[in-house]
């Protein structure tokens, strides 16, 4: 109750006597100080420009991506057909002798990722 009264007095510009009043005056004065963080001077200009920028009428990035992929697939098919190539596992047949080791490695990496996500990352945040 006493604190509430002192806070009201200090806020109203009165100067209550005693140590509590003095301490509250320091607190109220500090609360009027600007926070340390300030936005850069060009912030308003940059954000306004980004927000009002007209939307692209044609997405050239997407066009080149689709065009490139189509060209790549078409060329690959043409080469496969004209060269009478046959599909084979080739160098990957080497792995068949180590299937348990590879299986274990994949499982182990997966487990490590799970442990990291579940326990370690959370601990790092706190």
């Amino acid at each position: 109750m006493k604190d509430e009264w002192i806070q009201k007095q200090v806020e109203a510009g009165q100067a209550p006597e005693g140590q509590e009043g003095e301490l509250y005056k320091i607190v109220f004065s500090a609360l009027k100080q600007e926070a340390g963080f300030k936005l850069p001077s060009d912030f308003a200009g940059r954000v306004a420009a980004a927000a009002t920028r007209p939307a692209k009428s044609f997405n050239w990035d997407l066009f080149f991506l689709v065009f490139g992929c189509t060209l790549c697939v078409t060329t690959s098919l043409y080469v496969i057909i004209t060269s009478h190539a046959t599909l084979s596992v080739g160098v990957f047949s080497f792995f068949s002798g180590y299937r348990w080791l590879i299986g274990f490695a994949l499982l182990f990496i997966g487990l490590l990722n799970w442990v990291d996500k579940k326990w370690i990352s959370k601990a790092a945040i706190h």
Partner: peptide, 24 residues
């Protein structure tokens, strides 16, 4: 209406408020 100059004015007017709020 999409007026860039007006939006820049609005940002300048309220950037302090937003910075204080987010910064806290």
């Amino acid at each position: 209406e999409g007026n860039k100059h007006a939006f820049e004015l609005l940002i300048r007017k309220y950037e302090r408020l937003v910075a204080h709020m987010v910064g806290r």
